[in-house]
Amino acid sequence: MTNSSIGLIRGIAPLALLALSNPVQAATATTSDFGKMPNGEAVKEVKLTGNNGVSVVLITLGATIQAFNVPDKNGHVADITVGYDKVSSYIDAPNYWGQTIGRYANRIANGSFKLDGKTYQLTQNDGTNSLHGGKEGFDKRNWKLASVKTNPDGTVSATMTLRSPDGDQGYPGNLDVTVVYTLDDSGSLTMQYSATTDQPTIVNLTNHALFNLGGNGWPYGTYDEKLTIPASRYTPINDKLIPTGELRAVDGTVFDFRNGRMLYDGVRDGSDEQIVLAHGWDHNFVLDKGHTDKPELAARLEHAQSGRVLEVLTTAPGLQFYSGNFLDGTLLGKGNVVYRMGDAVALEAQLFPDTPNQPNFGSAELDPGQTYHRTIIYRVSTQD
């Protein structure tokens, strides 16, 4: 057994044992209205609760994780994600805070790509780039709540669906998308994404939660947290935050998270041009595991003071680590908290940015008759 395996088992044990000590309880799911869209359509809320004290609030607007409530090592519960308290804020001041991202997560250079010899122009919402699906990406849609149920294994789940029509934001093909959120009693929230198309298209779905293990509004931001990413290479960027195509070794740089790195260590290191370009970390890491059939570890975030641990597991080959560089104090979030630079971080499991324009990154194509699949797990625990 490796040291990393021992660390994972130690981290999971407290919440898992708590669940086992309450065998008569079971995870529960409740549904209510979160608010209304401008056209009067209801935005539904689903709360999934495990018997270990972990609960997740989902809303259909953006198929979003609105809250992720997790006990610390002393049993005190806090929401470890940023977000808003009401629908109007998600609409009037949109941001990528817990939403499902699509049709293509991350950046596409100049908002264009070629597929089968044809050039497609996407909406541009990040300078000349298309970011996270364009101006009206999946994060801004009110998804359909297809089902909420208790499963035979004792887990609870919510299923949301979306139809993205041919030409949506410039993407070809009618795309039918499903995301299933499942919470168990040992601290794992599993997201299973699937999609089908009637024309060749590109797909790259992820969740864009921003985490602070100290809790929403923790005064020290995330700089007192430790991050591990099992990646020996990353994709450096140009001044438009588009990968250059290079797969650069992390050895000897502030991009080496393989043995764990405190987030204060490197985020302001102006001797590294990549930190200057992105105002911190906003880079894709090439996971050593590559693309896998079953979810494997992509990141581990630890907060010593609370004892909270978050592990991200995925089938995807890449992980975008974003250190909250553009949280500028102008947005008022949950509980009237002002979010400032570094107050939360994103760990986005994904294909590499701009893959449709960079053949050495692989393929993002989905064809008729195929089904797109991706699994992401957010696994929370505590340690002393």
Rank of each mutant, 00 (worst) to 15 (best):
G98H: 10
A93S: 10
G62I: 00
G75M: 09
H76D: 14
T64H: 00
K44A: 02
T49N: 11
T119P: 04
V43A: 02
A105Y: 01
E136L: 12
D92S: 09
D92I: 02
Y84H: 12
Y84S: 03
K140R: 15
I80L: 05
N95L: 02
D72Y: 10
I80A: 03
V46I: 15
I80D: 07
N129F: 05
K86N: 12
V46S: 05
D116F: 05
Q99P: 03
I91E: 01
G117N: 04
I108T: 13
G133L: 01
H132S: 08
V57H: 04
G137C: 07
G117E: 04
N110L: 01
Y104F: 11
V54C: 13
L58G: 02
H76T: 15
L115Y: 13
V87F: 11
G53P: 03
N51F: 15
T49W: 06
G75E: 12
G50L: 12
V57I: 14
A78K: 14
F68I: 07
N125T: 14
L131Q: 06
Q99N: 13
Q66T: 11
Q66S: 14
Y120Q: 11
A109R: 14
G102V: 02
F113Y: 13
D139T: 07
D72C: 08
A109I: 05
A78N: 15
N110I: 00
I65G: 00
D139R: 01
F138T: 15
T60F: 00
K86F: 05
V57G: 01
N51Q: 15
T119S: 14
D126Q: 11
R103C: 02
T60E: 00
P94I: 03
G134F: 09
G111E: 10
V82N: 08
A109D: 13
V87M: 08
I59T: 03
A67C: 10
G102Q: 09
R107V: 06
N129K: 09
I101W: 01
S88V: 06
S55G: 14
Q66I: 06
K44G: 03
L48D: 02
G102I: 02
A78F: 13
Q121M: 12
T123W: 12
G50K: 08
E136V: 14
A63H: 04
T119G: 08
R141Q: 15
G50N: 13
K135L: 15
H132R: 03
Y104W: 07
D79K: 09
T49L: 09
K118T: 15
G62Q: 01
D126L: 02
V57E: 02
G98E: 11
K44S: 10
F68M: 10
D139E: 14
E45Q: 15
L61Q: 00
S112G: 04
G102R: 06
D85V: 02
L61P: 00
I108H: 06
G117Q: 03
K73F: 14
R107E: 06
N142T: 07
G75I: 08
D79N: 15
A105V: 04
G134P: 13
D85G: 07
I59W: 00
A105S: 11
A42N: 15
D116L: 03
Y96R: 01
I91L: 12
G134T: 09
A63F: 03
G102D: 08
A63S: 13
N51W: 15
T81L: 07
T128Y: 06
I59N: 01
V82M: 10
D116C: 04
N74Y: 14
R107F: 03
G133M: 02
I65H: 00
H76N: 13
D85R: 01
S112I: 00
L115A: 11
R141E: 08
